[in-house]
Design a protein around this nucleic acid. Structure first.
Ligand code: SF4
Ligand code: SF4
Lengths: 153, 153
DNA sequence: TAAAACAAGACTATATTAGTCCAGTATTTA
DNA sequence: TAAATACTGGACTAATATAGTCTTGTTTTA
């Protein structure tokens, strides 16, 4: 029951963009080093966020990323969903999947309820909350990447 | 953000034992086939539950497992915690671990709040709730194991 | 039109999951 | 008291997921 590292990184990226004045365009490189997210991983994450309409991407020379929605319209649930897919809790709650005979399982409906509860918690937490504490440009704590070096086979 | 299969199996095992009259002693074999949990995996899971004091184990010929606490004193949180360890949500919430400089991270306290919220949800859901719906001995839906056959290398 | 940036996706090492298997220990009962 | 039965503990494993990197291509600006 943990979010993964990619999601934590994604939160950092969005947080950084939320902190820029007027949704300024910022290069992946800057986000990456400011928030201590491995460079090329950051690109991948920003692409996901971009496709999901949370950030906007701009190609070309003066390109980069900018925030696409007001911070108060971006929730923790949005980020988790974009990165990890719909919050499922248990397999029987994944859309396509069903566990043999889910309708007859006495536990199934309770998992469903729990999921809803968790989703509400995550949806309530929007990014404007973080900005109260953190002025734009403040440094972010590094989180040691597992693999920093390139694969020098 | 999913519980793992072992936890789902653990819930099934506990549920089955809760359904037995007077905390009757039941063999792992019976639990396994009644609840469709792979046999040897069930043993392992029951051992964990036993060490955690949720079920009691009895060795020897008429041995097996029985429920060790009243169903209403066993919660979903208990099971998840026993099987997967303390609910952490993010690395910075694991006891020993800290992410470089967690105290300065603006997101950290919010993860903490979310964790507390999720824990409450899981703690509220106790096993007596399931028994309202399900009379002892009702069959359980199978959940197709990933690996059914023994490793015949 | 060259340089700067993102886009898409193939590729990889390591960790975790989802189990199996076996040698040993405790308990009952013939 | 010695089988037989059932749990205990731990080593072992294949498949999958995680946490990244790298390369090639496309868009935009100066
Ligand atoms: S909760 Fe019930 S329906 Fe869902 S996966 Fe577990 S056994 Fe299947
Ligand atoms: S939330 Fe903050 S402290 Fe926690 S892991 Fe992420 S960056 Fe580190």
């Amino acid at each position: 029951m943990q979010i993964n590292r990619e999601t934590d990184y994604a939160v950092r990226c969005v947080l950084y963009l939320c902190g820029r004045k007027d949704g300024a365009i910022t290069m992946a490189d800057e986000i990456s080093s400011a928030m201590n997210v491995p460079r090329s991983f950051a690109s991948k994450i920003l692409q996901k966020l971009s496709r999901a309409g949370i950030v906007a991407s701009h190609q070309g020379v003066k390109g980069g990323f900018s925030i696409a929605r007001a911070p108060r319209n971006i929730s923790m649930l949005d980020i988790v969903t974009v990165i990890e897919g719909p919050l499922a809790l248990n397999v029987c709650l994944e859309s396509g999947e069903s566990c043999g005979l889910s309708p007859s399982c006495p536990v199934h409906p309770y998992w469903h309820t729990l999921r809803t509860g968790v989703e509400e918690l995550f949806a309530e937490l929007t990014f404007d909350r973080f900005l109260e504490d953190r002025l734009p440009g403040k440094p972010m704590p590094p989180r040691t990447p597992l693999r920093t070096k390139k694969t020098t086979k």
